[in-house]
Nucleic acid binder design. Structure first.
Lengths: 145, 145
DNA sequence: TATTGTTATACTCTATAACTATA
DNA sequence: TATAGTTATAGAGTATAACAATA
């Protein structure tokens, strides 16, 4: 007989804690008029991993049309610039502005503060172990370092 | 200067890995015609933590109207029964049927299989540490044991 | 009047499909 | 004809608000 509880599985806990983390991160981003995916896009640009909108969509695992609206919003805020690739005028190359870089830094700080809040009850050893385990999982599942 | 990357924060990793876990869990539930929240409701009933729809809504952190539609679906499948509380005929008491119990067991098995798949690359030590850390976080954030 | 459950409606997020410009 | 980006449309998921029955 199987008396494992659904709520103690990793799948359930990752899902529920992930939803909590995303909700709280969203709340902290709201004053900046950003959502988590906007910040994810800024982060892709900062890493240099992709620049054309289609490549960004593939990397983020979202539809190209979503990148359009994320980029529209970020461009209107002055956080990114769109530049036509002269070699292939179909491509839009996105680049971070100084303002976009500063914004990403602020959002990263917000995420760090949230980390502190979320993990206040863990011992330093538990916290290290959590970082290590999630880092491994992220790498295995193709998420950025 | 701050060179912490957004993508290495716990908030970001919990959010993204949580989304992956939920997506994959959803895919495994689809053949049963269930979504994660349906299974969450079954799990609440099995734990005995709440029975009236309003209490369930509070416990799950969702709108009462959502519990109505989750319960409608589960009732139509024969997984739960609605019983009017004779002492207060406004209250609908939800109870798991045998079929609902069996369904919850199957879904829990699916979650365990998913755990194995998701964490295949972790050492046993890392896996234990992850369970422990997420268990602590879940308890602190008011999630069921 | 207050509360439980329900129904009606609207909003957010995101994908798919149709379209434009360039190759 | 194929591809990058854009626009238009549609669907899933969930909340809010209005409503009905009971207290």
């Amino acid at each position: 007989m199987n008396d494992v509880k659904l709520t103690s599985t990793l799948a359930f806990r990752l899902g529920t804690l992930g939803a909590i983390a995303t909700d709280r991160f969203s709340a902290r981003l709201a004053p900046h008029d950003l959502k988590p995916k906007h910040v994810g896009l800024l982060s892709v640009l900062a890493s240099g991993a992709a620049a054309s909108q289609l490549d960004i969509a593939k990397l983020m695992g979202v539809a190209p049309s979503l990148v359009v609206s994320l980029a529209d919003h970020l461009e209107a805020m002055g956080a990114v610039r769109r530049l036509r690739d002269p070699a292939d005028r179909r491509r839009q190359t996105l680049t971070l502005t100084d303002e976009g870089s500063a914004l990403l830094t602020e959002c990263t700080t917000a995420a760090c503060e949230l980390d502190t809040e979320l993990t206040a009850g863990l011992t330093p050893t538990q916290l290290d172990a959590l970082h290590e385990a999630l880092g491994h999982l992220a790498a295995e599942h193709g998420l950025p370092a």
